[in-house]
Computed example of a mutant assay.
Amino acid sequence: MQEKTDRRILRTRHQLRDVLLDLAMQMPLESITVKILTEHAGLNRGTFYLHYQDIHDFHEQLKNDILEEFHAMIKKLSHPIGSHQSIMDPPSGYVRPFEYVLEQKRFFQVFMGSTGDNVFSLQLTELLKKQFLHAYLLQHKQIKLSDVPDKQYYLFAYLASAYVGTMQFWIQQDFQLLPTEMAILFSQISRLGSAHVRF
């Protein structure tokens, strides 16, 4: 019985998510109220409030779900020290995040498009900074967190901001490049520097 209830809850949440994204492609996100959302979903407002406190709570849970799924895919953003991996053949860990964004394109168009949610972009940047720090500590196992050079944090901030900014431009360009092309481009820029990238 519990499994059947859980499936029903998941189905309702997916339905609300899909309707929200559909509506947000047609009107500003901030204009979508619980009333509008539930009417288009064919649900009553009571059903909505069984799952969420209000529309803002709904947005936050939706963003958190995406951030958690994205976090599971950014485990290999740094090449190991001494790696001779070809830039033109990036590891799957580089490509997979871009594939995920494309798979969830409606969400990312809504929350990172030209009229997107700045808070989500900042949350994604913070997530990437933490991942870069985690990768750095794995590569420098003799270094404690307290011994990480201050300037290293500036590098993490630069890379995370560049990654999110590049991804945001890709989204706003309606996914003009393939995920593999995006991974190669970011690898070129991050490993060679912008002055040495040739197209």
Rank of each mutant, 00 (worst) to 15 (best):
Q2K: 14
T5C: 07
L10P: 03
R11Y: 09
T12G: 03
R13L: 10
R13E: 15
R13W: 04
Q15W: 07
L16Q: 01
V19L: 01
L21H: 00
A24E: 04
M25H: 08
M25N: 08
M27I: 08
L29Q: 11
S31Y: 11
I32Y: 10
K35P: 02
L37Y: 05
L37M: 06
T38H: 00
E39I: 04
E39A: 14
H40A: 12
H40C: 08
A41K: 03
G42T: 00
T47S: 00
F48Y: 01
L50R: 04
H51V: 00
Q53I: 08
Q53T: 10
D54L: 02
D54G: 02
D54M: 01
I55R: 08
D57I: 02
F58L: 00
F58Y: 00
H59M: 07
E60M: 09
E60D: 15
E60A: 12
Q61N: 01
L62E: 02
L62V: 00
K63A: 08
N64E: 15
N64W: 06
D65M: 12
D65N: 13
I66H: 12
I66G: 08
L67T: 14
E69D: 15
F70A: 13
K75G: 14
S78M: 04
H79K: 10
H79E: 11
H79S: 05
M88T: 13
D89H: 13
P90K: 00
P91V: 02
P91R: 04
S92L: 11
G93P: 00
G93E: 00
V95G: 03
V95T: 09
P97G: 10
P97Y: 06
E99R: 13
Y100C: 10
Y100G: 08
L102Y: 09
K105T: 07
K105E: 15
K105S: 15
M112W: 09
G113T: 11
D117S: 10
V119Y: 10
F120G: 12
S121P: 03
L122A: 13
L122V: 12
L124F: 06
T125L: 07
E126C: 09
K130W: 03
K130L: 10
A135V: 02
Y136Q: 01
Y136A: 01
L137D: 01
Q139L: 02
Q139R: 03
Q139K: 01
H140C: 01
Q142H: 13
Q142I: 05
Q142W: 06
I143K: 03
K144E: 14
L145A: 09
P149D: 04
P149E: 03
D150V: 13
K151I: 12
Q152N: 06
Y153Q: 09
Y154S: 15
Y154F: 13
L155Y: 12
A157E: 15
Y158R: 15
L159P: 03
A160P: 10
Y163I: 08
Y163G: 07
Y163L: 12
G165F: 03
G165N: 09
T166W: 08
M167F: 04
I171E: 05
Q172M: 14
Q172D: 10
Q173A: 12
Q176N: 11
P179A: 04
T180H: 10
E181Y: 04
E181I: 07
I184E: 12
F186G: 05
S187Y: 07
Q188I: 05
R191K: 14
L192E: 08
R198V: 15
F199S: 10
